[in-house]
Amino acid sequence: MANKVAIVLLVCIGMVVLLAISELPLYGSPDTPAQNYVAERYIQGALDDTGALNMVAAIVIDYRAYDTLIETTVLFTAIIAVFLVLKKGTEGKGEQK
């Protein structure tokens, strides 16, 4: 039952989403909004700005380094979280040392 409801719901949403997709700028065309001044600066200025040939690298470690810092924090958070979940023993009974 729940499965059927989920399917019907997803199909309904799917129709609306298709309508939305038909409105999106065409895929791969060079004059989509995404290919604007932002892309231009990255492509033409990355070398001068950062000295990196690889623009992706330039973005990851220079233009958007703050994001990368937080990204590593995500990783760090997950590691600590895994520690916290997996650490054995002493469940709620206090330290047994």
């Binding site: 958007r64 703050y66 994001d67 937080i70 990204e71 924090t73 995500v74 958070t77 997950a78 600590i80 979280a81 916290l84 979940v85 650490k87 469940e91 709620g92």
Partner: peptide, 24 residues
């Protein structure tokens, strides 16, 4: 916007983990 997403992820994982801190 993308910074929002990354921050949201940190918050999500951290808040999940502090729920699990009780560990039962």
């Amino acid at each position: 916007l993308f910074n929002i997403y990354v921050m949201v992820e940190v918050a999500t994982i951290a808040s999940c983990a502090i729920v699990a801190a009780r560990n039962d």
